[in-house]
Design a protein around this nucleic acid. Structure first.
Lengths: 335, 335
DNA sequence: TTGTAGGCGTTATCAA
DNA sequence: TTGATAACGCCTACAA
């Protein structure tokens, strides 16, 4: 392994001078710069970042923690964030976690390893934050989940109002005359997001003089096609008279639609379906999927802006709500 | 920041003893172990990995370089790899790159930074390998692309035979009586994969007594819905008599189908479509998409096995072909 | 403009 | 079973 010492020896200069050249500083003579750069190129030398960050204690990098590798909404947001950060002098460190992993523990690890100046959480469980977030001391933004009830001095949030959004989805179904509505979502004990949306559903039922009976109307699934497919089958078995489905993600909605079609139901003639997220897929699906569109671009932009506000301008945390949008699609029919 | 020194001081033991406990070694008295673990828990101490790896010069980690953040086939493979590696003592470092980025350059950086014991490339451009791969000295496996013509002593490959697979896709269309077939794919100048599949198409045309006229039959797109949507419109404009489409990814196929439907073509009655990759989406789409299924699970499994063979058993590189599978779907109609 | 020397947090070696 | 001490590769006062 070739180190800075080798470059120093080969170039005839000292390690410090080599270090200066490496860090593009201007207190180096053109001769030294030229010679050293030649040797660096010759040996194909790249500094060891472990050593670098160990000393520097800051790395001009932003960490992104993504919960759920196949979450398409998050993929879109990450892409957007990458573009924004790419234009700055910061580096992005993306870390993908399982849907159920402890993102706060991972955040601590990341801080140790890479010493990022700030962190973006794509999805997060408030329980983990309450448990361990006090050990994270860099500015953070929780994206797509709200964090205003947690009162950490370094934690902002940019989120969609999940309660209102879920109500909006339900409203679209009620407006089309549906009363027997089934719901497909995550584990409301574990997924904060699912829980919030569930609350929205319950309120919506109430406003229409109904009560949401969890045992019959709600079925738990993971955020994947096949899990939703099976959940749809279970739901239909226990609630055969349903005429509409609210699925808490587009992927779930599509899994459900396939299950329904395989049982010879027509969408939307027999059963209506509305999804959530508004990913590109929704508008390319057949039928075009009715959905609640989360503004992934705005979520990304505001998150980064707020994070930089905290890092560079030492601003206080902000808890921001990004408006959602109802997309009518072709998957809801009148009863 | 709390360091190992702090733990040493607070526990009353020396740094070395703390280090021993941290690394689960057995030459420590139970008393010391207990006391130190208490203090570690109390201070919520996590060792600094930079310092650790700096010293150790090996990190028991495997790096994964993924080209294209929204490539669903790669997402599935990564998921599979994560599960496999999770069961071992190795750590996985996943790095997502743009579709067009230089993965070999990134690999060099990764080696410096994290000192992985091996690398998996999900997608790769042979040009970049020829240019810079000689600087990468850890065992590597190129996944989904072949590398047998490159003869690097530390580079294996696990791939689908793109030429044969493309021929198989074309064959399905010819078998249904189609002669006017349009093709949607990546830039054959830049994407090796696209180029290989293009060759397969050309051979297939030839075998049916036709010649593939690139100017009229082929249209370039990125691997995204909207890019394929627009490409489909362009293709239809210059080749209006086409009756079938081969799209070089499922995402492209779906983008194309949406474009065709928006122009009031029925799939498959008016125009047949076959995709590539065989991602979960294909079987959940309406109509179910005919496609060439790449065995992402086998690709993942074999890649990891081969990599470990190289790392631990010092085996020579292997170039393996994983069989593909034709999935008939519902998107091909007879003419 | 350049070089010397000390330190970042950890592990490994060796002696006690 | 423990502890002192020297690395690891780099950066940065400080000195020249």
């Amino acid at each position: 392994m070739v180190t800075i010492k080798d470059i120093a020896r080969e170039s005839g200069y000292s390690v410090s001078t080599v270090s200066r050249v490496l860090n593009h500083r201007n207190d180096v003579s053109p001769d030294a710069k030229k010679k050293i750069e030649e040797v660096v190129a010759l040996y194909n030398f790249v500094p060891n970042n472990n050593a670098k960050h160990l000393k520097q204690n800051n790395s001009k990098s932003i960490g992104v923690l993504v919960k759920g590798i196949s979450n398409m909404l998050f993929a879109s947001i990450v892409e957007e964030i990458q573009q924004m950060i790419g234009k700055t002098e910061y580096t992005l460190v993306v870390s993908y976690l399982d849907e159920d992993a402890d993102e706060v523990e991972e955040a601590e690890r990341l801080c140790r390893e890479r010493k990022p100046l700030g962190l973006l959480f794509l999805g997060g469980n408030p329980d983990y934050f309450k448990k361990g977030f006090s050990h994270v001391d860099v500015p953070c933004v929780l994206v797509t989940n709200r964090a205003n009830d947690m009162e950490f001095a370094n934690l902002s949030s940019v989120a969609t109002d999940d309660i209102a959004a879920a109500k909006c989805a339900m409203e679209a179904l009620f407006a089309a005359g549906h009363r027997d509505i089934g719901i497909l979502g995550g584990d409301i004990e574990k997924s904060y997001t699912s829980h919030q949306r569930y609350i929205g559903c319950r309120q919506s039922f109430k406003e229409h003089g109904l009560s949401l009976k969890q045992e019959t109307c709600y079925e738990k699934a993971r955020f994947s096609y096949d899990s939703a497919y099976r959940a749809m089958q279970r739901l239909l078995k226990k609630y055969p008279q349903l005429t509409a489905i609210f699925a808490m993600s587009d992927v779930m909605a599509i899994g459900a639609i396939r299950a329904l079609r395989d049982m010879n139901y027509r969408i939307p003639e027999d059963i209506s379906v509305i999804g959530f997220d508004g990913t590109a897929l929704a508008e390319y699906y057949n039928p075009k999927l009715a959905t609640i569109k989360q503004q992934y671009r705005t979520l990304a932009t505001r998150s980064v802006e707020i994070l930089f506000g905290q890092i560079e301008l030492k601003k206080d945390p902000i808890h921001e709500i990004v408006p959602f949008e109802f997309v009518s699609g072709e998957s809801i029919g009148n009863i």
